[in-house]
């Protein structure tokens, strides 16, 4: 039995107060949300605030080390690395958010159905997921992009597909343990159909662990998209994208022009780092039990 919180007149925290509390309680969460806001700002307003045109070439100004005009230096075609790094944020975040959203939705639906009804649906789904996971995931994504064509949409679909098994399995397990829970039975007695019981009573309880998965997945998705671009699949030059920029810069590291690859790589690393740190905070925010 849990403790009684019988303080008359004290209202439970609202969502906003809860969010503030979660942020204040854990400095790591605070840091990660701050960094996330930093990346969001770049994604929304990056193109407006950068000092140079990310696509403008200037051969006379090529391979300049970082200085006051070009904070992150310039690349082999004389383009401003700082502007390109900032502008690339939008594309990289879009790819990862959309990919994760698609895999979240499809994975949740498949996993919830398998977890709730079980039986042959469950068995079939599990074997299909096993098959997907039996491939090296990055190679599978490469294959899909190569087969479907070299476009941003196809990177999104490929990234989404390789992440579906993670969501489906997690949701399946979370739904399965709650299928016979008292509140699920009570929902049936209250006149909820199986669908309503699953969608409105059981599934929302799987959200906290899902949030951890979402945030980790965002990091993977960015790495995956950058990785595909790095090997020349997906986003094509001269579009600014972290993976391509690292790939281009890699050729110049040996000749001492380290800044061309370092800064896009640093942004990529920071983005992945941010998403990995956000997981616990997101979980605490969507878990009503954390509201005391």
């Amino acid at each position: 039995m849990t403790q009684a919180t019988d303080i008359p007149g004290r209202k439970p925290d609202g969502a906003w107060a809860h969010l503030l509390h979660v942020l204040r309680e854990n400095p790591v969460t605070m840091l990660s949300f701050g960094m996330f806001a930093f990346f969001l700002l770049q994604a929304f307003f990056g193109a407006l605030i950068v000092p140079h045109d990310p696509l403008a070439t200037n051969a006379a100004n090529a391979l300049q080390p970082p200085n006051w005009t070009h904070w992150f230096g310039t690349d082999s075609l004389g383009r401003d690395v700082f502007s390109r790094v900032v502008v690339a944020t939008r594309l990289d975040l879009t790819i990862s958010v959309l990919a994760v959203a698609i895999s979240f939705v499809i994975g949740s639906v498949l996993g919830a159905i398998a977890g709730y009804w079980g039986g042959w649906i469950d068995a079939v789904l599990n074997r299909v997921l096993d098959t997907i996971m039996a491939f090296p995931l990055f190679v599978l994504a490469m294959g899909i992009v190569a087969a479907l064509g070299n476009t941003v949409e196809n990177i999104i679909y490929a990234t989404a597909l390789i992440n579906i098994p993670f969501y489906a399995r997690l949701v399946r397990a979370e739904v399965n343990i709650r299928r016979e829970a008292g509140f699920a039975l009570a929902a049936r007695l209250s006149g909820n159909s199986h669908f309503r019981t699953l969608a409105f009573h059981i599934f929302p309880n799987a959200l906290p662990p899902m949030m951890v998965q979402v945030s980790l997945n965002m990091g993977w998705a960015i790495l995956n998209a950058a990785g595909l671009s790095f090997i020349g699949l997906g986003v094509r030059p001269p579009t600014p994208e972290w993976g391509i920029m690292v790939a281009e810069g890699a050729n110049y590291i040996i000749s001492g022009h380290w800044w061309v690859a370092l800064f896009p790589g640093l942004w990529l690393m920071l983005a992945v780092f941010t998403f990995n740190l956000m997981g616990d905070g997101l979980r605490d925010i969507v878990d009503p039990r954390r509201r005391t």
Binding site: A181, G182, F183, L185, A186, A187, H201, N205, P288
Partner: peptide
């Protein structure tokens, strides 16, 4: 139900 905690949806 027997277990009042288990029979209430934690999110409701």
């Amino acid at each position: 139900f027997q277990d009042a905690t288990d029979s209430l949806n934690p999110r409701h």
